[in-house]
Simulated scan of single mutants.
Amino acid sequence: MRVREWRAGTAADVGLGAAAAAVLAFYVYRVGASWGGAYGVFGCAAGAAVCALALARRRNRLRAAVVGLVVAAVAIVVARVARLPAEPGPGVTLGLSVLVGSAVRVLPPRPACAVAGGGLVVVAGAFAVSPQAVVGVLSATGWAGAVAAGLWPRLLAARRRAVEERVRRAERLELARELHDVVAHHVTCVVLQAQTARLLAGKRPERLATSLADIEAAGSDALAATRRVVGLLRDPARGLPALERLDELVRRFGGHGPDVRLRLPDGEDASLWPPEVTTTVYRIVQESLTNVSRHASQARSVTVTVARSGESVTVEVADDAPPVPARRRGRTGYGLVGMRERVEALGGTLRAGPRPGAGWSVLADLPVPARERP
C-alpha cells in the first residue's frame, strides 16, 4: 500500500512539475509579446518559487502554504509598485492552489481554515490592487477550486470514519448483548442449582448427587452456549437461536423455577420469519425468564406468549409474583437495556413494568416485512 501511495504521489508531482513548466513558459511568451521580454522575469520567478514550494509541500504542508501565501502577497505589492504585469500570475495561482488544497485536505481544522483564509486574503488583494479583472477572477477561481478539491475528500474521510465508528459501536453492543444474554442466563441457572445443592446437603443428603449432576449439566449448557456465541461472532449466519428452541428453554427454566406455559402461534411457519426477528424473540424470552429467577422468586407461574398479527410479531412474558416495592429498581440492569436495543434496532417497541394487581410483564412488538410473510 505504501509503495502504491508513493508511486501515485510521484506521478502527481511529475504532472504538477510539467504543468508548472508549461504555464510559466506560456506566461513568459505572452508577457514578452505584449509588454516586452524583461517584464515577465519577476512573475516567472515568483511563479517558479510558489510551484517549487508546492512540489515540496509533503515535508511540511503548513509551512509551505504559509511561505507560498507570503510570496504571493509580496508579488502583488511589488508588481503594483514597480508597474509590472499584475500578480498573482498563472504560475503563482497554480502553485498556490495546490498548497491551499493540500492544506485543507490534510491539516487539522484550525490550520486548514487559516490557510484557506490566507488564500482568500490573497484573492481580495488581487482584486483590490489589480486594474485587470481577469487576474482577480483567475486567482478567485484557483482558490475556490483548491478549497473544494481539499474539502470534498476531507468530508468523505470524516463520513467514512463516522460510519466505521457506528459499525464498531453496533458490533460492540451486539457482542455485549450476546454475552450478557448467554452468560447471565446460564450462570443464573448454575447459581440456583448450587443454592439448591447447599440446602440438600443439610436436609436431604441422599439427593445431593442428583443436584450436583444438575449443576454439571447447567455448566455444560453454559459452555455450549458460549461456543455458539463464538461461532456467531465468526460467522453471523451460524448459531442464531431458532424459535423452535423456546420449548427447550422453557423446559430448562421450569426444572428449577416456577411453572412456565408457552403459547406459540398456531398454523404459523416461524421459519419464514426473518432470522433477526426469531433471534430477538428468543433473547427476549431468555432474558425475561432470567429476570424472573433473579427478581421474582415468589412467582408461581410464568406465561410466555408469541403471537403473529398482521405485519407484526408480539412476544409477552408475564409472571404472577406478588408486588414488591423495590422490584422496579431491581430490573433496571443491562438486560432490559439490551432487550430494548434489540427491539428498537428492528423498528419495534418494548414495554416492561408491573401488571395490574400483581406480577411483571415484558411486552415487545416486532415488525415483520410483508415479503417475509408465509
Rank of each mutant, 00 (worst) to 15 (best):
A224L: 10
A213H: 02
L199G: 04
G239R: 11
A224E: 10
V229W: 06
L200P: 01
L243Y: 04
L192T: 04
S220Q: 15
K203V: 07
L240H: 02
S211K: 01
T210W: 00
G231D: 14
G202F: 11
G231Y: 10
D235W: 05
E206W: 05
V187I: 11
G202S: 11
V183L: 15
A209M: 13
A218N: 02
G239S: 08
A242H: 04
D214T: 01
L240A: 08
G202E: 07
T226C: 07
L200R: 11
V182W: 04
L243V: 08
L192C: 12
L243D: 02
P241C: 06
H185Y: 14
L240S: 04
A184C: 06
T196Q: 15
L240R: 13
A201P: 11
L208Y: 12
P241Y: 02
V182P: 00
A225F: 03
E216Q: 13
H186N: 08
A201C: 13
R228Y: 03
R228S: 08
A237W: 06
D221Y: 05
E206N: 07
P236F: 09
L200E: 02
A242M: 09
C189L: 15
A197I: 04
E216M: 07
I215A: 00
R227S: 08
A242W: 02
A224D: 09
A194E: 07
L208M: 12
E244M: 13
T188W: 05
V230F: 10
A242S: 04
A201L: 15
G231M: 13
S211R: 00
R234Y: 02
I215E: 00
H186P: 02
A194V: 03
H186A: 06
G219P: 01
L232C: 10
V229F: 10
H186V: 03
D235V: 02
S220M: 13
H185T: 10
A213Q: 05
V191F: 14
P241L: 03
T188A: 13
A218C: 11
A237S: 10
G231H: 12
S220P: 02
E216V: 13
D221G: 06
K203Q: 05
V190G: 13
A218I: 01
A184E: 04
L233K: 08
